[in-house]
Design a protein around this nucleic acid. Structure first.
Lengths: 240, 240
DNA sequence: CGAACGTTTGAAAATCGTCAATGTCAGTGG
DNA sequence: CCACTGACATTGACGATTTTCAAACGTTCG
């Protein structure tokens, strides 16, 4: 679960979604020049957080940007009306810490033990002046996030909870961290409440829908946190 | 059919949302250096489109990025299952033309007559090499769009259509292009179908909800496309 | 063991989508 | 000038999915 880190700091910035050829490696990570990595490393501070602990609070002064080396982070936004919407799950290689007016826009909590790296925003800004190439990398990242965000929107706007859930399971199955391609078993890192908050529904509906999908033989429950997926079946459900 | 262009090209790039002081002017537009504007102008091509005409099609090769000088654009995404979700309305100063794998991710249609400027993507990329500052401006823009996108998500995930509609009206009231602060009258430039597609509901529900809001005296219909808003009341509804 | 938490299940109410019909308005052509 | 047409908007009735409220069930952990 922890990064091997052959070099003192291996910075894997995942370009969520896909980008044209020459900016990412085979694993979908940005290719950073040696000097860029060196410059970034100089201002990088490793930070380990345990599962179920907050990393940043919505509304706090945004001092840092975070990069995930291992673990999963949930980003949630509290509305004025008391609702809490999960805006994204962040995976290894993701950057997080979106800010507006120098305040964090969302709260971020560790779902699992996490191995993070944090960069001071001012220091990053300064780096941009001396390392122009770095800006481009962050631009690619920002646009990738934009696509991800849109994908989440499209997921959440499916009218039937069944479709939203199917889409969510498919999404998770694309994360090597929690899907075993061999057995077809998906490990759910988050609890029902989090799934509900991400899919914009209720715990009860999530629970019922899991049951419904199981009856339709699209998934098989191993236990509450482990399900075997019929990916083709789920994808068919989604496009129907 | 051609741009009026008082100056050869006045490039207003709106930093959607808000950004810290020194990168935007009082109107919320990015401050571009003279040489940046000159460089951009060199590759800028004015383009005028009439209301209700397509600008780009989802899936087409993404050759350009567009900047809106005047008019309103709707960006919509066709799902495999036939659903069409409006992903954003773009206003003057906005950039649009999000791409993935060099293909447009969404279709864009002009809602009103539009005065656009288009930049060739390869030319832009080339510019980034010679004008490092420009990349930063686009980074700011991308992040601003990210915030906007999240706001749309939060809007759409309100459970009650009433709340979504209220949020939408408030959002529109922040566009000087369609809200008259003096009279409090909002001009809806999009039809009910588009509003429904943006709010993830149906034409009928939108229509009914407008009626419901009117009964609750939160809005007054002048005609189908013009409503007087009780902004405080609408905001109260949203946070309840 | 018991408490706390997460998950599941049940039953009832409510919102919303669907289908269908009607209404309104602008533009067209006789 | 008026009927006609088509696009858009509204209204009604119905059914269905989903939320809500409650309670039971299982696990984990002190």
């Amino acid at each position: 679960m922890t990064a091997p880190a052959a070099t003192p700091l291996s910075l894997r910035i995942r370009a969520a979604g896909e980008v044209p050829g020459d900016t990412v490696d085979s694993a979908g990570n940005l290719i950073l020049s040696t000097q860029t990595v060196a410059a970034l490393s100089a201002i990088a501070v490793p930070l380990d957080v345990k599962a179920r602990t907050p990393v940043v609070r919505q509304g706090d002064e945004a001092e840092f940007v975070f990069l995930i080396r291992s673990g999963v982070i949930k980003a949630e936004h509290q509305l004025e009306d008391g609702r809490t919407q999960i805006v994204a799950f962040h995976w290894p290689g993701d950057l997080f810490g979106l800010a507006d007016h120098d305040l964090y826009l969302n709260s971020a909590d560790a779902l699992t033990d996490c191995d993070l790296i944090r960069f001071s925003r001012p220091a990053l800004k300064a780096l941009f002046l001396t390392e122009p190439g770095l800006q481009g990398d962050f631009l690619v990242e920002a646009i990738a996030h934009l696509r991800l965000s849109q994908r989440h929107l499209l997921l959440v706007t499916h009218q039937r909870v069944a479709k939203r859930l199917a889409g969510f399971l498919i999404e998770c199955s694309q994360k090597p961290e929690c899907y075993d391609t061999q057995t077809g078993v998906l490990s759910l890192i988050m609890d029902r409440t989090d799934i509900a908050a991400y899919l914009n529904t209720t715990v009860e509906s999530v629970s019922r829908m899991i049951g419904a999908l199981e009856e339709r033989k699209l998934i098989t429950r191993v236990d509450a946190r482990h399900v075997r997926l019929d990916l083709p079946g789920l994808k068919a459900l989604l496009t129907r």
